[in-house]
Amino acid sequence: METFITIIAGVLFTIGTYLILSKGLVRIILGLSLFTHGVHMLLMAVNGLKKGGAPLLGEGTDVYTDPLPQALILTSIVISFALTAFSLVLGYRTYVELGTDDLEQLKGDPNE
């Protein structure tokens, strides 16, 4: 299971990177989303899966899964939400203001 999840994460990384490296703004934002998902999956897999119950003391099991990566991922989810929202708006404003989303055309004047 861990290997499988790691490979899924790897695929998400590869495709995320490919999209990030493209020229269109929308693709870059989508690529970032994929990359984040990949990181979350990897963090879960690295920690070991199905090792115990949910980290709720009310459940009354003996062994719990490690709560620390979960807390970290929760933080990451919210941050990446903020990041996506911001870059999305940035991208859309850029497009509205400048009429293009091609990053090659967006690069500045070399003498600037």
Partner: peptide
């Protein structure tokens, strides 16, 4: 070149993930 870089990134991170287990 993009494909090469992204494959590199993916493979590196996958290998790290697998080795850590």
């Amino acid at each position: 070149s993009n494909l090469l870089i992204s494959l590199g990134v993916g493979i590196t991170l996958t290998l790290i993930g697998l080795s850590v287990q």
